[in-house]
Structure formats: C-alpha cells, structure tokens
Amino acid sequence: MMPKACRHALRAGVCALLALPLAGCFEQPLSILDPAGPGAAPITQVWWVMFWGSLAIYLLVLGLATYALLHRRRNGQAPRRALLIGGGLALPIVVVFLLLAYGIRSGQAMLPLPTSQTVFRVDVRGHQWWWEVSYPDAPGGALYSANEIHIPAGVPVDVHVSTEDVIHGFWVPRLGGKIDAIPGRTNVIRLRADAPGEYHGVCAEYCGVQHARMALVVYAHPAEDMPARLAALAGAGVDDPADLQDTQGARDFTQHCLACHAMNPRERSSQPGPNLADLGVRAMLGAGTLENTPEALRDWLRHHQARKPGNRMPQAGLPDAGFDAIADFLEHSSTP
C-alpha cells in the first residue's frame, strides 16, 4: 500500500493539474499565455517549457520518494552520494543552463536590431503615476498624449522608455516582455502587434503608493489608418492661446490647470502633468483609475485625491460650478 505522505503528494499534484484550466490565464488582457506579437510568443514558449519541465521534475521527485519509501535498502540507507551529485548538483546545473540558453534566444525578438522594415517610434516616459507618450516622428513635429499608445499593426515599433522620477517597469504582456525605465537612461524595446486590437499594459516595477493604478493601453490600428490617427491627435486640443479665454471654463483652466497640463498636442507640459489635448477620446482617467465619462470627469476633478490618494495633482479651490465649467471646456476642446 502507498504510504500516506506519497498519497497526499500525488493528490496535490493531480489537483494542481486539474486546476490549471480553471486558472483564468488564457485570453485575459494581461495574459502572457495569449501572445499577440513576435516579442511575446517566445516568452509564452519559455513559460510552457518551464511548466512542463517543472512538472516532469516534480513527478521525478515524487517517483524517487515513492521508490525510496517502498524499496529501502537492506541496511536502511539510501544511495546518498548518487542522489547528492545527480539530483543536487548535476540536475540543477543542466536545467538552469538550458533555461538560460533558451531564454537568451527568446529575447532576441525584442531587441531593436537593424531591419529593412520601416520602424515606428514611440517615446514613453514614466511618472508617478502615469505614462507620458510622444510620437517624435509625427508629421509636423512631435505629438504628446498620455496613458494610451497608438501604433500601426504589423509594423515593428521601437518604444523608447525613460522615467521622470523613480524606476518604473513598462510591460504590455501580450506584445512582449517588460523593460525598466531607469533614471538617467533610455531603454529601447521592440514590439509588434500582429493584428489590430487593444492591448493592456501595466507598470511592472513597484514605484510608490499608486503603483497598482498606473495602467496603459496600446491600440494597434491597421497600418493604413495610422496617419489619420496621428492627424486626429494633431487636431485635438487648443493651439491658439486666445481660445483659452473664450469661456469661463477656459479661463478657470488657464488659472488653475494650465501650469501643469498643456492643451496643445505639440507641446510637452512644462510641469509633470499629462497633456490633455486628446482627453476627450481617451478611455480612462487617472491612468486606469476611472472610466472616462462626463460624470467620472467631474468626479475626478472634485475628488481625485480620494480616488487616487497621493497623486501629484493639487486640489483646486473651486466651487462645483467651476469644476463643471472646466469639465465642459475639456470635453469640447479635447475631442478631435
């Protein structure tokens, strides 16, 4: 009869295998098991290699433990030297070496190597706790946005990642691995979306109290539609300073918000605040904190410290009518 300890271990292994299909790892927005580009596919392969390899090692250890319990040597001693050298030294060295070699090969797809294809460039700068996005090669000059990245599908995209403050981690799991944003450095990762779609990302390096609310979304468009998307961004916002005095909302925005938030899509905010030129067409507010609806925008303006405590935006001392006026201005001015 199988010893009780072995029965428990076998039962645990069977339960783990049965639970895998229920783990919710497949076809999820942040799943590495649902790759959507050549940068993510090798990572998925490494994951499966590690999973099946770990399962094989687990079963091997389970089998050896069962054998040792059922077939003790006459003197009661197990072959310690063979187990020590084989299982404790040789096996880990071989496994780690194979994983290292396979992992290095898998990372080649994310290196910005020379290519005959046209490469689309996006600059992403991490802030506590949001993402600054710019398109330096856009027609007519650089364009600025925040927390949403628009790229052409089927085209290599070099993402130049940097940071304004602390270390952040740029990671879009379905398109590739993560890369750190390190103060004083710019790191480059090459991604490509095989098909148009929406790909979610996060900050993968703890960066402070609102680390969990630092989401981003990558929108991959058909390549032929990308010029129109950039043109729409260029046409959003306010490029004439006189327009900032037309309404009460514009005047309130100029007085309380303009020092940190640019409204011209071709200007980088002078202070660490997101460019709001295309806010009206963004899906989320506060880097994924709230869905972007008229009601949520007004709630965010009034209670942003309650919704995302510790964020760098100061509280404006305005009556409700003032917040409503600013919200109206943003809704009408930030829609292409």
Rank of each mutant, 00 (worst) to 15 (best):
2 M>K: 15
6 C>A: 15
20 L>Q: 10
22 L>E: 08
24 G>L: 02
25 C>H: 12
30 L>G: 01
31 S>P: 03
36 A>G: 09
38 P>W: 05
40 A>L: 09
40 A>P: 11
41 A>S: 12
44 T>E: 14
46 V>D: 12
47 W>D: 10
53 G>E: 05
56 A>Q: 06
57 I>W: 14
57 I>K: 13
66 T>H: 13
68 A>C: 11
73 R>P: 04
76 G>V: 00
77 Q>R: 12
78 A>T: 01
79 P>Y: 03
83 L>S: 01
86 G>F: 01
89 L>E: 07
91 L>V: 14
93 I>M: 13
96 V>N: 13
97 F>C: 15
99 L>K: 13
99 L>T: 07
99 L>F: 11
99 L>H: 15
106 S>H: 03
107 G>S: 11
108 Q>M: 07
109 A>S: 14
115 T>P: 14
118 T>H: 15
121 R>N: 08
125 R>Y: 02
126 G>D: 04
128 Q>S: 07
131 W>Y: 08
131 W>S: 00
136 P>I: 08
138 A>C: 07
138 A>P: 08
141 G>Y: 04
142 A>I: 01
142 A>C: 07
143 L>D: 01
149 I>C: 09
155 V>H: 09
156 P>A: 02
160 H>R: 12
168 H>W: 02
168 H>L: 03
170 F>K: 06
174 R>K: 13
175 L>D: 00
183 P>N: 08
183 P>Q: 07
189 I>T: 09
190 R>C: 12
198 E>T: 05
198 E>Q: 07
201 G>F: 01
203 C>D: 12
203 C>H: 00
205 E>P: 10
206 Y>Q: 07
207 C>N: 14
209 V>F: 06
210 Q>G: 06
212 A>E: 09
215 A>Y: 04
215 A>G: 13
218 V>C: 04
218 V>K: 06
222 P>F: 03
223 A>K: 12
227 P>D: 03
228 A>S: 06
228 A>C: 00
230 L>R: 14
231 A>V: 02
233 L>G: 12
234 A>V: 09
236 A>T: 10
239 D>V: 08
241 P>I: 00
242 A>N: 13
245 Q>Y: 08
245 Q>N: 09
245 Q>K: 13
247 T>V: 02
249 G>F: 02
249 G>Q: 03
249 G>R: 08
252 D>I: 05
254 T>C: 02
255 Q>M: 12
256 H>D: 09
258 L>K: 13
259 A>S: 05
261 H>Q: 05
263 M>P: 08
263 M>D: 06
263 M>R: 13
266 R>A: 04
268 R>W: 05
270 S>G: 08
271 Q>R: 15
272 P>M: 05
272 P>L: 01
278 D>S: 12
282 R>Q: 10
285 L>H: 03
285 L>A: 04
286 G>I: 05
295 E>V: 06
296 A>G: 05
297 L>C: 13
298 R>N: 13
298 R>M: 10
302 R>Q: 06
307 R>D: 06
308 K>G: 02
308 K>R: 15
309 P>E: 06
309 P>W: 02
312 R>I: 02
313 M>N: 03
319 P>S: 09
321 A>M: 00
322 G>R: 05
324 D>A: 14
324 D>Y: 10
329 F>G: 11
332 H>M: 10
332 H>P: 07
334 S>G: 10
335 T>L: 11
